[in-house]
């Protein structure tokens, strides 16, 4: 378990000169920074800064669904992902790099089937294997005890906080090595927020988390490193403690102290 920010930490995601445009309009100016293996890396910044665009580029959803054009290079474990094309390879990438959206998005099916969806598509057929995956994922998302007796309940009938933890569990069932979260707690109660933060901290030994958050306190609580985006620009990136106490850029301090955004 190396959640530290030591000098020799492995680079999981290397973003180099990543520029994102939508129909010519720049959403993120060329940004370069590394996301280290087995850490929680948060991205903070006001709305419209390009946080979501960056996050959705890490699993190529911005490219495939939002009509984004991405320049530069994004390497995951030293492999370039921006050149990946084709349904099969995209699917493989998304099993490696899971995502949890801002609003909880359970599919209209049971808790069990929500979680089994990804593994089934990946080819897991045996009931026993699926059962085990469902249990393990729900435990990891701190939800097993709440729902173990009613796995056939519709995912959509859960409370918002439970729905979001179900979505986290569903992502974990893919056995990803990276999980992207886009303001996952923006609509959640404090207890569910706490449980999600706890899950991330427990799991970061095996999973690298990229956490976009509109809540600077959350970044301060859980993130090992933090990047600050402002109006389509990566202002700075560094260890969370440093960003929050001794930022290099005046604007970072202003944002953290709530002077704008």
């Amino acid at each position: 378990m190396s959640g530290d920010s030591g000098t020799y930490a492995l680079v999981k995601i290397a973003a180099k000169d990543v520029e994102i445009r939508y129909r010519g309009k720049v959403a993120l100016k060329p940004a370069t920074f590394d996301i280290r293996s087995s850490t929680i890396h948060s991205i903070i910044g006001p709305a419209g800064s390009g946080k979501t665009s960056f996050l959705r580029s890490l699993n190529l959803m911005s490219l495939e669904l939002d009509g984004a054009a991405i320049k530069g290079s994004i390497k995951v474990d030293d492999d370039e992902i921006l050149t990946i094309r084709g349904a099969e390879k995209m699917a493989k990438l998304r099993r490696r790099i899971g995502i949890v959206f801002a609003t909880p998005q359970p599919l209209p099916r049971s808790i069990y089937e929500n979680i089994a969806f990804g593994p089934r598509i990946a080819g897991t057929r045996k009931k026993a294997d699926l059962d085990a995956l469902v249990e393990e994922s729900l435990r990891s998302a701190h939800m097993w005890d709440e729902v173990k007796d009613r796995l056939d309940l519709m995912g959509t009938s859960l409370s918002g906080g439970q729905q979001q933890r179900l979505c986290l569990a569903r992502t974990l069932a893919l056995k990803p090595d990276i999980v992207l979260l886009d303001e996952p707690c923006s609509a959640l109660d404090p207890i569910s927020t706490y449980k999600i933060e706890q899950s991330m901290q427990e799991l970061k030994g095996n999973i690298t988390f990229v956490l976009v958050t509109n809540n600077t306190k959350q970044a301060a609580r859980v993130a090992d490193r933090t990047a600050f985006f402002l109006m389509g620009e990566l202002v700075e990136d560094g260890p969370t403690a440093k960003i929050f106490t001794r930022p290099n850029d005046q604007r970072t301090g202003d944002y953290i102290e709530g002077r704008f955004g």
Partner: peptide, 25 residues
């Protein structure tokens, strides 16, 4: 639209998303 996004994000191809999520809905 979110159903399609969710399916794709979980490793489904576009066709699998249509067959397994969109059509049942």
């Amino acid at each position: 639209q979110s159903y399609r996004e969710v399916a794709l994000s979980l490793g489904a191809s576009k066709w699998q998303a249509i067959v397994r999520v969109v059509m049942p809905a």
